[in-house]
Amino acid sequence: MAYEFDFQSVLAYAPMFLQGAWTTLILTFWATLAGFVLGTLCAVARTGGPRWLRLLVGGYVEVIRNTPLLIQAYFLIFGLASIGARMPIMLGVVIAMVVNIGSYTTEVMRAGIESIKRGQIEAAECLGLSRAQIFLHVVLRPAMERVYPSLVSLYVLLMLGSSVLSAVGVEELFGVSNRVQSVTYRNFEVFIVLGVIYLAMTLVLRGVFWALGQLIFPRRRRLGTAL
C-alpha cells in the first residue's frame, strides 16, 4: 500500500515552525557576533601574544575542534546546572555556541592574519603608523576580507549545527518540531518541512552575509573578486 503524505496537519503548525526558526536565527546571530569577537581576540593572542597565552589559546582551539558540539553543550549546560549555576537556557546555549565557534574563528582569522606579508607591516611602520593602527588598518581589515568566505561557511554551519542543541532543551527550530511530531505522528513530513525551512534559512543567511560583505568591503563591491 502506498504511503499517503499528509502535509496538511503538519503545516497547521506553521506559526510554531516560524517561531522556532526565529529562535534559531537569534541564537546564530548572537553566537556569530560574540564568536567572531572571541575568535579574533584569540587569533591576535595566538599570533602575537606571549608564549603562555599562545599555548593557552592553542589548547582551547584544539580541545574544542576535536570534540563534538553536543558533548560540549552537555558538559557546559548540564555541568553548570549540576553545580547549581542556573541560567536561562537561551544564554547557556549561546555560551556553548560561542565557545564552539570561537575556536573555529580563531583558526580562520589566524590564517588571515598570517597571510599578511611582512612588507605590508614594514611599509606601514615607515609611514609612522602606531602598532595598534597597523594592526587595525593594515592587518585586520585585509585579513578579514581575505577569509570572509570561510567565515561565512563557518557561521552557516553553526546555524545548521545548532539543531543538535534541541537536546539540551532549547526550543529552536528542531526543538519545536519534536513537539509537532509528538502531536501529529507525521514524522517524515515534519522532517521534510524542516529540511525545506533549513535550506531556505541557509540561502537567506548566505544572502545576508553576501550583502554584509558588499557593505563592509568596498573593494569587493567594486571589483567583485576575492582579495
Partner: peptide
C-alpha cells in the same frame, strides 16, 4: 618616520 620616506622594490601598497 615623519622625516623620512622610504620606497621599496616591492611596492607594498595596501591591497584593500
Amino acid at each position: 618616520r615623519r622625516d623620512v620616506g622610504i620606497v621599496f622594490q616591492s611596492y607594498n601598497l595596501f591591497p584593500h
